Simulated scan of single mutants.
Amino acid sequence: MLLGALLEKIEDICILKCVLRVLWLHSQKTGFPRFLSYEDLSNDTTIRAVTSADIDKVDRGLYDVLDQMVSMNILIGIDIRMDEGPQEIYMPNTQEGRRAVRYFQGQGLYMEHSDRVRDLSSGTTLKPNIFSLYEDSIGIIGHIVAEELKEAENQYPSTWIEAAFREAVLNNKRSWRYVEAILKGWSREGKGRSNGEPERYSKRPDSREWIKRYGLPRPSE
């Protein structure tokens, strides 16, 4: 998760304080998978102080704040099976957090249709944005690349972006320049289909022309 991009989308000071505290608490955990239980959060004096009242002395409640952070894709919230019963846990919505969810699913510990936590089966919590796609496909996001990612997210359909990252991975070309070249190629060669999927064009440039235009090898068909 890129902190700069995260801070830009948060306008509520209460949410901002909780996000910073949750990220710090999570960083203190060791091993894998790392997560924070609801009890970890509710017992934290800083979290309790922030969620009991914001700057306008309006009662917020921890559940309300956590639900908003999950809705904003800042946190992942799930229930897992434990010996003592179901446990509600939270993790930052990062590559590590999504890998932890897959781990719990693989171990048969992930509980669907939780009464208290957003259901991951709906796809809303783990829907990838361009930053998570970059982290999963390429690696750590630098400041300069982050600005380019934000521009690309505003310029291209999300289905194009997902498909471009997928094609880069399949071709073992894990670089933003390669993904960007794919997107520019689709944009210049024509519009996508009505369903949002990038179409293949009959008059694509040959390999030499592609390198001349974009400075990278042409993606495979």
Rank of each mutant, 00 (worst) to 15 (best):
I78L: 09
A163N: 02
Q95R: 14
N73F: 01
V65T: 04
D115Y: 11
R81C: 00
A164I: 05
S122L: 14
D67Q: 12
R102D: 03
Q155E: 14
M72V: 00
R98G: 13
R99H: 02
T125W: 03
G139D: 07
G106A: 06
A152L: 02
D79V: 06
L120C: 07
V169R: 11
E167H: 14
E148R: 15
Y156A: 11
N154S: 15
V169Q: 12
Y90N: 10
D64I: 04
I78E: 08
R98Q: 15
F104T: 05
T159V: 12
E153I: 01
E151P: 02
M82H: 01
K127P: 00
P128M: 05
V145F: 04
V117K: 14
Q95V: 08
Y134F: 15
E148Q: 15
L75D: 04
G108T: 03
I76W: 05
V65L: 02
Q87K: 15
H113E: 11
F131N: 01
T94S: 15
A163V: 00
I138V: 05
G106L: 07
V117A: 14
D119P: 12
I144K: 14
M91S: 06
K127Y: 05
K150P: 00
M91E: 07
Y110P: 02
S137Q: 07
I78D: 06
S121R: 12
Q68R: 09
S121N: 03
Y134N: 09
D119W: 15
L149T: 13
F131M: 07
E167T: 13
P128C: 06
D115C: 06
D83L: 09
I89S: 09
E148I: 07
D115G: 09
L75Q: 03
V101F: 11
Y156G: 04
I74C: 07
Q105H: 15
L120M: 10
